[in-house]
Amino acid sequence: MHIDLTGKTAIVTGSTRGIGYAIATGLARTGATVVITGRKQADVDSALASLRSQVPGAIVRGVAADLSGAAGFKVLKDAEPQADIVVNNVGIFALQPFEEIADEEWTRFFEINIMSGVRASRAYLPGMQAKNWGRIVFISSESGINIPADMIHYGFTKTGNLAISRGLAKSLAGTAITVNAVLPGPTLSEGVQDLVAPGGDIATAERVANEFVKEHRSSSIIQRVATPEEVANMVVYVCSTQASATTGAALRVDGGIVETFA
């Protein structure tokens, strides 16, 4: 299968590293014009330089904006008025006992993990409707189905992603605009590396993360963490023209952790 998104503009939120960066790289390889976002200009510039090195000839731009609130989306929309593809990837996670999660943390997780996707989708949907073509993807998580006891606030927001993506897909029935959610399992992003092996090298982080999967996600069929690129492959597919009959779906890249057929 050859995926060609030449002429399409894709915005990937939270894409200076990790899964978001891998998605941006994958989309750039298809010929799409890719817009990277991050909070700090230095991080955006670094990611752009890295992507251009990895994908010679890639058409990539960057916007520095804090997407934890509405003001950041005004910055993004002013800089990039139109998009054919929106990947709602920006998000946060943290291990925290339920009784220690303050109201402010619940609100912070809601604003970043849920409202960022709402705001980005709402901002760019009218342009997609005018063309009658578009792709919206929410990066959820297997934690949205298997709510982790030590990250209840995170799991709650990822379940919210599933509800919004399904409802938005239904609201666009009969159009050529698709909306889907992709559910990664444990993935060896930089954030996970920092969590499981702070200050360690990649090999150490991978070993510790794989041990975590075997002990705490024992239903995993692959018995290891995924790579950001493995998650990105699914996202690139659902952004493609070939995925025109895939919408309203929750597509798992969880290594088989979730014990359901659907």
Rank of each mutant, 00 (worst) to 15 (best):
A120W: 01
A120L: 08
S121G: 10
R122L: 09
R122N: 09
R122E: 12
R122C: 02
A123V: 13
Y124P: 02
Y124E: 01
Y124H: 12
Y124N: 02
L125S: 10
L125P: 12
P126F: 14
P126D: 04
P126H: 00
M128P: 09
M128A: 04
Q129A: 12
A130P: 09
A130W: 03
A130E: 08
K131M: 07
K131T: 09
K131D: 06
K131P: 10
N132Q: 12
N132Y: 10
N132R: 02
W133N: 02
W133V: 12
W133Y: 11
W133G: 08
W133M: 06
G134T: 00
G134E: 08
R135V: 06
I136T: 07
I136F: 06
V137K: 03
V137L: 11
F138H: 01
F138T: 08
F138W: 12
F138I: 07
F138S: 05
I139G: 02
S140C: 13
S140T: 05
S140Y: 00
S141R: 00
S141Y: 13
S141Q: 08
E142Y: 04
E142N: 07
E142L: 10
E142R: 01
S143W: 03
G144P: 00
I145A: 09
I145V: 15
I145D: 10
I145E: 09
N146C: 01
I147T: 08
I147Y: 03
P148V: 12
P148Q: 14
D150G: 07
D150V: 14
M151Q: 15
M151L: 11
I152W: 03
H153W: 04
H153L: 03
G155Q: 00
G155V: 02
G155K: 01
F156Y: 13
T157L: 12
T157Q: 01
T157H: 07
K158F: 02
T159I: 04
G160W: 01
G160H: 02
G160F: 02
G160P: 00
L162F: 01
L162K: 03
A163M: 07
A163W: 10
I164F: 08
I164C: 05
S165Y: 09
S165M: 13
R166Y: 13
G167D: 11
G167R: 08
L168R: 08
A169N: 03
A169C: 13
A169D: 07
S171Y: 06
L172G: 06
A173D: 14
G174L: 05
G174I: 13
G174M: 11
G174T: 04
T175A: 09
A176H: 12
A176N: 15
A176R: 15
A176S: 10
A176I: 01
I177L: 05
T178M: 12
T178W: 10
V179R: 06
V179F: 14
V179H: 03
V179M: 10
V179N: 04
N180H: 10
V182P: 05
V182C: 15
V182R: 07
V182A: 03
